[in-house]
Write a protein that binds this DNA or RNA. Structure first.
Lengths: 147, 147
DNA sequence: TCGAAAATATTGAACTTTCAAGAATAGATG
DNA sequence: CATCTATTCTTGAAAGTTCAATATTTTCGA
C-alpha cells in the first residue's frame, strides 16, 4: 500500500526545482542573445521598463525588474557611468529618486527588444504557440496566487 | 491595422520574465521555510541529490543542482566544513571527485525534505492540484525542448 | 507644531559568484 | 609509446550581491 504521510519525490518533481531549471535555461539563452550588445539581462529589463518615458522611483523599479534594493542601486551606478540612464530627484517627494532612460539608452533598448523578440519567437516556434500561451497563463496565475 | 513585424509587448508578457518572477517568488518562500535549519536552497538540493547514497562526481552534481562548476566547488567546501558531505576520489577515474552525504547530512536532509514537502503541499492547496500538475508538465516539456 | 515613527535610497563590509587560468589524469593519434 | 588533446576539478582575482547600518525626507499622532 502507498504510505500517504511523507512521500519522498525526487527533486525533479518539485515545482521549485522545475522553475529554477526552466528559468536558468531560458535566461541562459536570452543572455546569449543579448551578448551581442554586451548587456546583462537585468539591464535590458531596466531599460525596457524605463522605455515608457515616465520616471520610475528606485523602489518601483526594483520590484519591476526583480532586483533587490542595494543590487539595483549599484547596477544603476554602472548604467549611469555608461550614460544609459540618469537620476533625477522627485519634486513631489524628495526622498525619491526618479530614473529615466537617456537617448543612448533608448536607442540601445530598441536593439535589445529586437533580440529579445527573436528569442520569444524561437521559443514559440520550437515549443509551440499553444503550449507557450498556456504556460504563460499558468505562470501569471501562480504569481498572482503566490505573491 | 496591426503591424505584424516588431510588436512591442510589455516585459510582463515575456516568458523569460514570467519564469524569473515565478522562480523568484517560489524560491523566496522555500528559502523562508528552510531558514528554520539555516540552510540555503542550493544546499538542500545537494543533500537531496546525494541522499541516494551513491557517489556523484562534481560535474554530475553541478548539473543536477543547477550550479556552475566553481560555485559548486566552493559551496561544497563550506558543506565539508560543516561536516554535511565528504569528498572521495573515484578509483575508476582519478580526475573525478565523488561526493557523499555524511550521517549528519542525511539526518539534516530528512528535516529539510519535510520542510520542502510542506511548501509543495501549500502550493498545491492554494494554487490547485490540477493547475500545479499542469504547470509541472509544461515546465518539464519546456526544459526538454530548450535544453 | 513638535517629535517619533515610517519610508526611501545609498553605503561599506562581508560574503558569494564568476571568469580565466592552472594542475592532474585520461584518451586518442601518429 | 610518446605526445597531443580533452576532461575534470580547483584556485585566485575580479566582479557582483547582500546584510546591516546610515542619511534624508515625509507622515502621523500627541
Amino acid at each position: 500500500m502507498a504510505r500517504s504521510p511523507s512521500r519522498n519525490p525526487p527533486i525533479t518533481e518539485h515545482l521549485a526545482y522545475l522553475l529554477a531549471q526552466a528559468n536558468r535555461e531560458i535566461n541562459r539563452q536570452l543572455e546569449a542573445r543579448l551578448r551581442d550588445e554586451g548587456v546583462p539581462v537585468e539591464q535590458w529589463r531596466i531599460l525596457k521598463v524605463l522605455s515608457d518615458g515616465k520616471g520610475h522611483s528606485m523602489g518601483e523599479l526594483a520590484d519591476e525588474v526583480l532586483l533587490n534594493h542595494p543590487t539595483l542601486t549599484k547596477m544603476i551606478d554602472r548604467m549611469v557611468s555608461d550614460a544609459l540612464v540618469y537620476r533625477a530627484q522627485d519634486p513631489d517627494d524628495r526622498r525619491k529618486v526618479l530614473m529615466y532612460s537617456s537617448e543612448r539608452g533608448k536607442a540601445l533598448t530598441q536593439r535589445l527588444n529586437a533580440l529579445a523578440l527573436r528569442q520569444e519567437a524561437h521559443i514559440a516556434e520550437s515549443y509551440g504557440d499553444k503550449a507557450t500561451a498556456e504556460l504563460k497563463r499558468l505562470l501569471e496565475s501562480l504569481i498572482d496566487t503566490a505573491t
